[in-house]
Nucleic acid binder design. Sequence first.
RNA 1: GAGCUCGUAGCUCAGUCGGUAGAGCAACGCACUUUUAAUGCGUGGGUCCUGGGUUCGAUUCCCAGCGAGCUCACCA
Length: 609
Amino acid sequence: MGLRIHCFRRKDCRVSEWVFESEFERNLFALRQEKLEAIAGLGQSRFPNQYRATQTIPQVRAQWGEVPAEALNGTPEQPAPRIEVSLAGRIMAIRAQGKAGFATLQQSGERMQIYVRQDAVGEAGYSLYKLLDMGDHIGVTGYLFRTRTGELTVHVETLTFLSKAMLALPEKYHGLADVELRYRQRYVDLFTNLDSREVFVKRAKILRAIRYFFDKRDYLEVETPMMQPIAGGAAARPFKTHHNALDLDLYLRIAPELYLKRLVVGGLDRVYEINRNFRNEGVSTQHNPEFTMLEFYQAYANYHDLMDLTEELIAFVAKEVNGTTVVEFNGHTIDLAKWQRLTMREAIRQHWQYVQKNLLEEIGPAPMYEELSNASSLLSRMKKAYKIIHAAFGPHGDPRRPSIGEPVLEPAEQYRRVDANSIIENDQDAAERYRLLLNMHSGIQQAWDDLEAEKQVGIAIYHLFEFLVEPNLFQPTIIYDYPTEVSPLSKAKPDDPAHVERFEFFIGGFEIGNAFSELNDPVEQRKRFEQQLAAREAGDDEAHQMDEDYVRALSYGLPPTGGEGIGIDRLTMLLTGSRSIRDVILFPLLRPEQHGEKHAEEANDEATK
RNA sequence: GAGCUCGUAGCUCAGUCGGUAGAGCAACGCACUUUUAAUGCGUGGGUCCUGGGUUCGAUUCCCAGCGAGCUCACCA
């Protein structure tokens, strides 16, 4: 910690100089320092090094929270035995009344009222009380009683000053409401918004439950490199960094996958790792550039074994953390113990049939499996379907794409000239219908584009799935048997080379995990790397690089292995009912704050360019 | 990356059909020995995000920029 706390408004500010956000803060800080001196004058240390409490506030509440007033307070004739306590906490409310007063201490997210009266703590003690402010840390000793209004309270006998808040706390009723401030100043958010604290307590419980689950099954927790010379194991753009002494470019890992499988080659049959991955991509309510993944690998298992394990894991974690497998998320009630499993093509067909039956009969029956396997028949089907669904929106229905040809059907009345924003505000069902149709529209359009560009049929199928089906998978769903073209690291189905033994699972409308029977044929692996390399040369900067050492590792023999990755942030969102990934990451990535003159200069520079 | 919305006191928010702004909390002073969003009386606190334009005059209108939220795109 330097001396500087804020340094925005003066471009030449030095580290040795205090720069406050405002006069208010400058004055308050000075005033609090004077109070600190006055506290020292009372014989207290300004910044004492420790305080020995005998209990925590949660402990006292747990033990005495329900004990009635008579038992604690006794009567004038029959005084009850005193319950002595020694507690520490942060002052979250303080109310002085002449020669006595109350304060509320907070510790570990729980609160305890204290009562300080001059005739109990003495004049010096009461002088200290009067020098206390919201946000200060103090220690108290005394005994428990209940006030007239029944609140469990510490009758203070000694007061020990522990640390001063030099800045003003947020408004005490609302806490920090500005989401940006809550992310930037999480240290304030955490003690003023206890809901926020609860999310991170739960996050820790989730991690603990996961570790327990895998440890119990003889998995070994490992840590593999986060800085890698080749960023592999996923399709994503990496961050680049540099090691000076070795003069070596390195990438922050996009996945631990290839290292974990090397470990299985090495005889660590069951391994898992929980740690950060880094992907150089945009941010959204579901994406942070660094995010936490659980990856685990199990020798001699295939993807069906992992499906069973996954269902068990998710239900177990939910139960450990929330005491139930039922969660409310985004207006949906989800039971994490009730799963369905569908192949990707089944899911597309099922969803298509749903749309046909409930929304748009003209779209026709779902494509048959043969149609979904053949590029030219799929293309002609997509063309047909596109015209129908496009017409359903009316000539102006989809602002993002000009009409292709003339509408072939009369637009269905309820979708004519629909405006997404107005119906989302007004009519939930209409908004839902609109969303479903728009997703279908986008998926069909995407598949058409893929096939038109002569991409492989599997890629078109995958896109169709992503748009049509994925956003609607609120209940726990395993989607399996992915097209080979979109799965460079997984193993083909023995009886169907067009598909691989891979599944992803979806809850709450987004993907949470991804698993497959790992490809362990080094020759096949090299071939797929080479294909990726070709894609890379063709301009796909997310395509895999060649990883010779990984192929070498496979050449020593990877046993048949199942592997899976689970997004911990998203799982946490689900189990805490958080709509944004930023609510489950302590310090989500934000642009640095810019203030005052520096800011203005940059704005001008920008304007004159 | 695109669209929409927002940015006013330390915090939570009003407001100004264009005439440089208010409340509550917090802060400061006084009163009050069972209050609890304590209360009562009084005081201080603002480059109304930044820059430019229009105007006699801009916090308000217009343009640009910065930051954030949401939606979409990319992605897990």
